[in-house]
């Protein structure tokens, strides 16, 4: 088991070997274990910007304007909020290529508490035109997400967790493409769209649902923007109901994206497992996940609800 942050570090090393123009900028993140290997492999290509996220994004923009590919790493909570104006003005509006890696996202900042946990980042980033948003579920897809982001011309927000997570798929390159979801389990009773740590919970939930006679299709929607719309709609046409699970506020995340898609293209019951518009608190990440209702149990419950609401 590895964290998506660690997976990102592996993907970053691989990408930096191929792309000499890749420059890593971070906001005093030396303590994060992915920095050391990068610095020793690529001396001179990592810049510690200090605790100055705004300057870091502006510097990244300058590097991109000068033909480099900046990869920016900081705490999700500070990167996406403190430097939001810079992200919008300097990267998103001109559509400059950059990876914004926000780590310790969701509840994975755990004991650090509410200020360091981040459950509004997907909403902020996906509201920006030109910005793509990827939320990998495990280390392998996180690693692949780096090269995926670099194939994309504009800025990409990559949401990372610091907590170790189980692998959700054995095939390392399984269908990890921007704008496409990973179909992890086929079914025709209900569509479960999930991202990040909730993908593993969704697979567990699908197992329980199958014992109850509901065959769940599980799609890892790691590409939240662009959303794998056609894949989701095709699934909804078969199943007629949907649950979306995400480690994010109920407002502005994957749930709303899928609900909005369904509402306009194929209205079916869509229920969300997410944080119900509140802030977190200190605790171990798994404890917080239980406390804020982000487990397979909630997915099973909401699935039963959505399934009973579907049109027959």
């Amino acid at each position: 088991m590895k964290s998506t942050l660690e997976g990102f570090g592996e993907g970053l090393l691989e990408a930096a070997r191929e792309r000499k123009d890749l420059i890593l900028l971070h906001a005093d993140m030396d303590a994060v274990p992915i920095i050391d290997p990068f610095v020793s492999n690529f001396p001179g290509r990592a810049i510690n910007c200090g605790v100055s996220e705004q300057d870091m994004i502006m510097t990244a923009a300058g590097l991109a304007l000068g033909g480099k590919t900046p990869v920016v790493l900081s705490w999700s909570a500070f990167l996406t909020t403190r430097a939001f104006d810079q992200i919008r003005t300097c990267l998103a509006i001109p559509g400059l290529q950059a990876i914004l890696a926000g780590t310790h996202a969701g509840l994975s900042a755990g004991e650090e508490g509410v200020s360091h946990q981040m459950n509004q980042d997907i909403a902020l980033m996906r509201s920006l035109p030109n910005m793509s948003v990827l939320v990998p579920a495990d280390a392998a897809s996180s690693s692949v997400s780096v090269s995926l982001s670099l194939d994309h011309p504009g800025p990409v927000y990559l949401r990372l967790g610091a907590d170790r997570v189980p692998d959700t798929c054995t095939d390392r390159n399984a269908d990890v493409r921007a704008g496409s979801g990973r179909l992890l389990r086929e079914g025709d009773g209900i569509t479960i769209c999930a991202c990040g740590i909730m993908v593993h919970e969704a697979l567990k939930a699908a197992e329980i649902l199958s014992q109850q006679g509901i065959s769940a299709e599980v799609i890892d929607c790691f590409s939240i923007k662009p959303l794998p719309s056609q894949q989701i709609l095709a699934s909804l046409r078969r199943t007629g109901c949907c649950v979306v699970a995400e480690e994010h506020n109920l407002i502005g995340g994957l749930g709303e994206a899928v609900a909005s898609l369904s509402a306009s293209e194929n209205p079916v019951p869509v229920r969300c497992v997410a944080i119900s518009d509140r802030y977190g608190q200190s605790g171990a990440p798994r404890e917080l996940q239980e406390y804020y209702g982000l487990t397979f149990r909630e997915i099973v419950g909401e699935s039963a609800q959505a399934w009973s609401m579907r049109r027959r």
Binding site: I23, I47, Q54, D55, I57, M58, T59, A60, A61, G62, L63, A64, L65, G66, G67, K68, P70, D85, Q86, R88, T89, C90, I93, P94
Partner: peptide
């Protein structure tokens, strides 16, 4: 890019690094 003030020196820093 511009429009929101206060960003010039940071962008200049990045351009110079590049």
């Amino acid at each position: 890019p511009g429009g929101s003030v206060g960003m010039g020196i940071g962008i200049a820093n990045g351009l110079m690094l590049a």
